[in-house]
Amino acid sequence: MKELKVQPIKDGTVIDHITPGNALKVVKILGITEKQPDSIISIAMNVVGKRGKKDIVKIENRELDPKEVDKIALIAPNATINIIRNYEVAEKHRVSVPDEVVGIVKCPNPNCISNTREPIETKFIVKSRNPLKIKCYYCEREVEDISSQIM
């Protein structure tokens, strides 16, 4: 029988323990398909792991930097990032939701000062981590669908 599982990668990043159903959003947020059109990306969704269902994204020949990791934390707070070098896990870290989210999410309130041409970055205060709730530092509006507001 043919092996259908996603194969190990030589170099790159494996994002594991993504909240089930969010793998495609992770890929979209990272913008990998546009930035590195030559990267091979493998996506596995609803994989049954030890801690229940999860999604996995494997990106070949690309190591994620911390700012990108922050972006993922907003929609996949339990994800782990594995940096793979020569088939080995060279670095492993959990994403952590920062106390403040700066310059990543756009405020959903069209009348918020952060949506005008003032010289400021958007800023959100993390109210709770599980479930994830963030609130605009300026207008205090809570963001209902965080993934749709990622810039």
Binding site: N111, C112, I113, I120, Y138, C139, E140
Partner: peptide, 24 residues
């Protein structure tokens, strides 16, 4: 605009008193 007073307070050294920021 909502949040304008909070933003102004970040730029100003002197105290800022909010007399109403949009629906804020």
């Amino acid at each position: 605009h909502e949040g304008s007073a909070r933003m102004a307070a970040e730029f100003a050294e002197v105290p800022v008193i909010n007399g109403g920021d949009g629906a804020g």
